[in-house]
Write a protein that binds this DNA or RNA. Structure first.
Lengths: 348, 348
DNA sequence: CATATTCATGCAAAGGTTTGCGCAAAGCAT
DNA sequence: ATGCTTTGCGCAAACCTTTGCATGAATATG
């Protein structure tokens, strides 16, 4: 076990020269004579020399590691974003260490600490739905440790971030419902302190207004972002005297839970109740009816977040670009009522 | 930028004592007088001292990092397994670095190299579907670098692994079909060189045999494990003169692609064609009809794989426990033909 | 009072790499 | 022959931690 890998020292000793010469030769430093350089490089190849990143990290004070904190790993949304990050991190020779907060503030704090302990160079974070205090991020800022938020951001902090235009998207969804004949449009929202909740709700209200609809308070429900609460929220909507003719779910967890619950009540989708969610490509197409949804450019979000991170590392200090990506409303079956079906053209 | 974190040296200088004293005091070494110990610990707390893992790694020759290679990250199956690994890695103070091979042998080799370069202490791997040469793993074994396989293993190598009993599961699925009145049971398999393909096919054949059915060669199709090929394979099955009355897909990708294609042909599931896949909990329940499936104990697989890994690190050398976990056939709607429905009891 | 014993602390090496600077030898010009 | 530059390489510091050994002082013992 633990067979030490070959080091510069090993090579130097074998050739009877100094370590520095070996180091330079390996980097084709012109200071070293060509013949010796070749000899050294050949031996290095044979001995399968690999520079020790620990030693380099110690010297250069960098670990080439990025800490990423997500609410969970098993959601396609996050794993897809992480894939995007990984792509650009790889190009830069960086690695990603993932920690999941499981939507818990405690675990999130713990993760920040742990990642810091293992000396990641910075953090890319999507805050948990419980996160309503931010000291653990303020410390990072004070110490000038690079930090980037994605999707769910702490708006009060001057930190680069990549999000989607939730207000615009939600407005469009509302109008889409309206154009499909819906008049009692319900919205299942998330915790008020999350930017995504706020933005999307705002868009929903704006949409109603633009369509000349009044907000019906019963149709705006708020719940935590998990399947259980979403199921309850949906059940509540379906038990109203006048049930909604459309439901808009703030994210995929909510949307699918709502779909299950509506089906359980034997209400046909979309004819009795139209349904739209914020989801990803894959899930939306696999369910029946195929779910109309606002799709996130997840890979791109991941790539951009990583890009911002590196910009942060390079520029240092007060750099706080806030990137807002557009979403796409992909109309599928779950929102197009039979009346309209003939005349609507199904995008994608 | 790059504000160096406080080191032992900083603390020592501030107190005008030696580094070693500080180091010892922080570990409550009785060698140091209680008063001084307290003074040192207090300062360390104020200065927010965190030991530098790079320095320790260099000293102890360990990085506390595990490399994990998966075919892809965005499949719930893998991300869920990784969650399990993370759980036990965390307990041991280890971190996980993920690399995805994208089902490509080239990328897999590259990942092995990259992870080795960053000095992970060992690897936990699910091989790509293309992987049919194993030098990159043999090197690891020769150098006694811990290696654990999960799900898809290289059977010719003496390496600890955790898999599921695919043969048993496939046999049960076949019998389940039979008991539901199916007689033309098709199976969409994966590349022959993968252990999972081999095992499950074997189970399928055994199941046919036990039910007194003969193998109909047309009903056994093989394809690569991606949605496109699975769609084609299904299409081929549906274009036979005598189409199957049941289809069994080797994994979730295949199963969902098959479902989409069957729906496209307007063939009712399960009445015309019963369908069963190897999938995870979540997806199976969200589709309609809910998919009967062999579910993997993904979290447990992850945990066990990590456990094996640590055992590997501790015991070193010739340790090659091969763990085989049981699966569960969860009967849902997609496989229970109307005839039988009344008498069948729906598990879960 | 001198030596042995204890106690508290510091020194230094090791782990691997990079790099500014120093040093020696050779080449060239004066 | 002397002085200067060039060439080619080694020394040593720095990054941070742990730990065996040495050092020094103070106390206890003979």
């Amino acid at each position: 076990m633990k067979k030490r890998l070959t080091s510069l020292k090993d090579l130097a000793e074998e050739l009877g020269i100094s370590i520095s010469t070996v180091s330079r030769a390996l980097k084709n430093n012109p200071m070293i004579s060509p013949e010796l350089t070749i000899k050294i490089q050949e031996l290095a190849a044979i001995k399968n020399y690999i520079p020790n990143p620990l030693a380099m990290g110690l010297l250069k004070q960098q670990t080439k590691m990025i800490g990423v904190i997500v609410p969970d790993l098993v959601t396609h949304f996050y794993s897809s974003i992480i894939s995007g990050m990984e792509e650009v991190a790889k190009e830069k020779g960086y690695y990603i260490i993932i920690a999941s907060s499981n939507e818990s503030l405690e675990k999130e704090k713990e993760s920040v600490n742990n990642l810091l302990k293992s000396r990641v160079e910075g953090l890319i974070v999507c805050i948990s739905q419980q996160t309503n205090s931010f000291e653990h991020f303020e410390i990072l800022i004070k110490n000038e440790i690079p930090l980037v938020f994605f999707d769910r951001v702490v708006e009060s902090l001057e930190v680069p971030s990549v999000t989607v235009d939730g207000a615009e998207a939600a407005k469009n969804v509302t109008r889409h419902f309206y154009e499909n004949g819906c008049r009692r449009i319900a919205y299942i929202s998330g915790p008020e302190h999350l930017n995504i909740s706020k933005n999307r709700k705002e868009g929903y209200l704006k949409g109603l207004q633009e369509c000349g609809l009044k907000l019906i308070p019963d149709l705006l429900v708020e719940c935590n972002l998990n399947a259980e609460e979403a199921t309850l929220a949906t059940r509540k909507l379906l038990s109203l005297n006048q049930i909604p003719d459309a439901i808009f779910g703030i994210n995929d967890t909510i949307a699918f839970a709502a779909m299950k619950e509506i089906k359980k009540h034997k209400l046909p989708i979309p004819d009795d109740i139209a349904l739209v969610g914020f989801t990803d490509e894959f899930h939306s197409t696999v369910v029946e009816p195929a779910l109309t949804s606002v799709t996130h450019p997840t890979l791109q979000m991941g790539r951009e977040a990583a890009r911002l991170f590196f910009e942060c590392i390079e520029k240092g200090k007060s750099f706080a670009e806030k990137l807002i990506l557009p979403t796409k409303l992909v109309v599928r079956e779950s929102s197009v009522k039979r009346l309209q079906k003939k005349t609507m053209q199904n995008v994608q």
